[in-house]
Design a binder for these strands. Structure first.
Lengths: 120, 120
DNA sequence: TCAACATATGAATACTTGTTCATATGTTTT
DNA sequence: AAAACATATGAACAAGTATTCATATGTTGA
């Protein structure tokens, strides 16, 4: 007797070709997906999350963030650098002091959606 | 002559007490912020992002994900475990096959907001 | 211009994490 | 019951990363 015809030549198991083709055609470019992962990696640390929440309602200078969160000035500054790199915060200088604030509404939305998710 | 009165006893630099108190009063509990960081950490990897996007439109079995993304079955399974742990995907069994799908709309919203942010 | 202040940065270390390899679990068919 | 299939899991290694410590840059006032 004949064995079952194998449409996907040489592969084991059942056929996925249709689903695979559909996924591949709609999946965003690799570069985009890497950038997206990089963005979320910035949110993936509790120190940075704390900084973002601290900035939720008003701008703050580095010293205030440092005191409020009980971190060292160096650690805060390193994390602000990461947040700046991801364009999640903006800053303005006033004399020796530099004030940071949230860059745009995406930050707020992302935090809020994440919060909703974990509170379910 | 008198030195300037130091309201925040012993600290150097200018005063942050008001801002610090405000931030501290509004900042969510540490545990919540850790959970939030943990959630975003799941999004912080391009393999998992790819899996989530693959599941964007329809459920898929592990084999289909494996083929579509060109990963090993083991790697996919490990990442699905992480996604399951964060309740970002759900699954159902049909014989030997297990179909995964997105758990809720937060996943879609978070991905979409992230995408908007990096496309600016 | 010098001292004090505010913030930033580089290097080193301790910790976390994604993948691979080998194997285990669970399901269906013969 | 055994074999084939589909998925899950544990251990180990390589790669990435947050903090600390020391120091640098930039700004203001004396």
């Amino acid at each position: 007797m004949e064995e079952e015809l194998e449409l996907w030549e040489g592969e084991k198991g059942h056929d996925h070709t249709a689903a695979v083709a559909k996924v591949r055609s709609r999946l965003p470019d690799d570069g985009i997906l890497y950038d997206l992962a990089d963005l979320f990696r910035i949110f993936a640390d509790s120190s940075r999350i704390k900084i973002l929440y601290a900035l939720y309602e008003s701008e703050l200078c580095v010293g205030a963030i440092t005191q409020a969160l009980g971190m060292t000035q160096s650690a805060v500054s390193h994390q602000l650098r990461a947040l700046r790199g991801a364009k999640l915060v903006k800053y303005r200088r006033e004399g020796k002091t530099i004030f940071y604030s949230l860059a745009d509404d995406h930050v707020v939305t992302i935090l809020a959606q994440g919060m909703e998710h974990i509170e379910e």
